[in-house]
């Protein structure tokens, strides 16, 4: 075997191992339900498909290595993909592929938590998330134009309690539904939407019974009896996830371990955080829960359509 053939064979084999490694990593995640830690459910089928394509490429590389060992050119596209000769350069290039694989296989699985939430900046029960989603537009609901005297007294009273504009119409409808419930359980599928509604129509919900679950988050701006019940909201993948939470007060808050998962219930009230007034939960009951199978929440892009 000529030296250049041997060199090509080694390259093809390294590439086969790396491509196969990524395919295996995806398969391993998909089998253990770990894929949801990295990407949103709606992207999962595509990532699983790409594992197939990676396998196919890996198998092709093995075939190319076999051809090279026989001194034959593999099917050539003539695009000058010849691997570089310099060894340090090769170590660097292949090292870049090995690093994420090694991290993925060797480090234990974990979820995003307080440390990243602090870097990314927590959003507390957040009418301002609406403003973000509407790219800077002010989301404060404007009062409906006065003077359209129709409707019975009840309806107009609830209209006055839940004023809305074109961007907040669905939140107003959802708000009325929540208001009718004796106790509000914040659902995972509408975590952000529910917190946003509660905050948007804050005055109406003071004194209401609310229950939600999330991980414990704390920062310096909080009082000794404060913590936040938080979730990461993911759009596509872990890198674009942002932390959302509701501040809670609880006498024994300091005893709670950060990043531990809790289910809390209590009544809504207004509290102080970082020099501002925010919506917070006065905790009456708290229990420790295990990390849920789906630790993240996902914004519902069809939220508006539910209320048309």
């Amino acid at each position: 075997m000529a030296g250049s053939d041997r060199r090509r064979m080694v390259h093809y084999l390294i590439r086969a191992v790396l491509l196969g490694g990524f395919a295996l990593f995806i398969v391993q995640l998909a089998r253990g339900d770990g894929l949801s830690l990295y990407i949103a459910p709606r992207m999962e089928p595509f990532v699983k498909l790409s594992a197939l394509a990676l396998y196919a490429s890996a198998i092709y590389q093995v075939y190319a290595a076999f051809r090279a060992s026989k001194g034959q050119q593999a099917a050539d596209c003539g695009c000058d993909h010849e691997p570089p000769v310099s060894i340090p350069k090769n170590v660097i290039v292949y090292g870049m592929f090995v690093l994420p694989l090694a991290l993925g296989f060797l480090l234990p699985e974990a979820t995003l938590g307080s440390s990243l939430a602090a870097k990314k900046g927590m959003t507390f029960a957040g009418a301002e998330t609406l403003a973000n989603a509407r790219s800077g537009e002010r989301a404060a609901p404007s009062l409906p134009a006065s003077g359209n005297g129709g409707g019975d007294a009840n309806a107009s009273a609830s209209e006055a309690m839940f004023p809305s504009d074109e961007y907040t119409a669905s939140y107003a409808v959802y708000g009325k539904q929540l208001y009718a419930q004796p106790a509000i359980a914040v659902p995972d599928q509408w975590f952000i939407e529910t917190l946003t509604t509660l905050d948007l129509y804050r005055k109406n919900f003071i004194g209401k019974q609310v229950e939600l679950s999330g991980f414990v988050y704390r920062d310096e701006a909080m009082g000794a009896d404060q913590f936040a019940v938080s979730r990461f909201a993911m759009n596509c993948c872990s890198a674009d996830s942002l932390p959302y939470g509701l501040v809670a007060t609880f006498d024994n808050a300091a005893a709670l371990r950060k990043d531990s998962w809790v289910k809390v219930s209590g009544t809504l009230e207004e509290g102080q955080y970082d020099g501002g007034t925010i919506l917070q939960l006065l905790v009456t009951h708290i229990e420790s829960i295990r990390t849920p199978d789906s630790p993240y929440v996902y914004p519902d892009y069809n939220f508006d359509k539910q209320f048309e």
């Binding site: 894929l35 990407i39 990532v47 498909l49 990676l54 994420p100 991290l103 993925g104 993948c237 872990s238």
Partner: peptide, 19 residues
């Protein structure tokens, strides 16, 4: 925690871009 976050973000982007 930072190492874990780093790993989750790095692999999240890589997996997302594969397809």
């Amino acid at each position: 925690a930072t190492v874990q976050s780093f790993k989750l973000l790095l692999l999240g982007i890589i997996l997302e871009t594969f397809p």
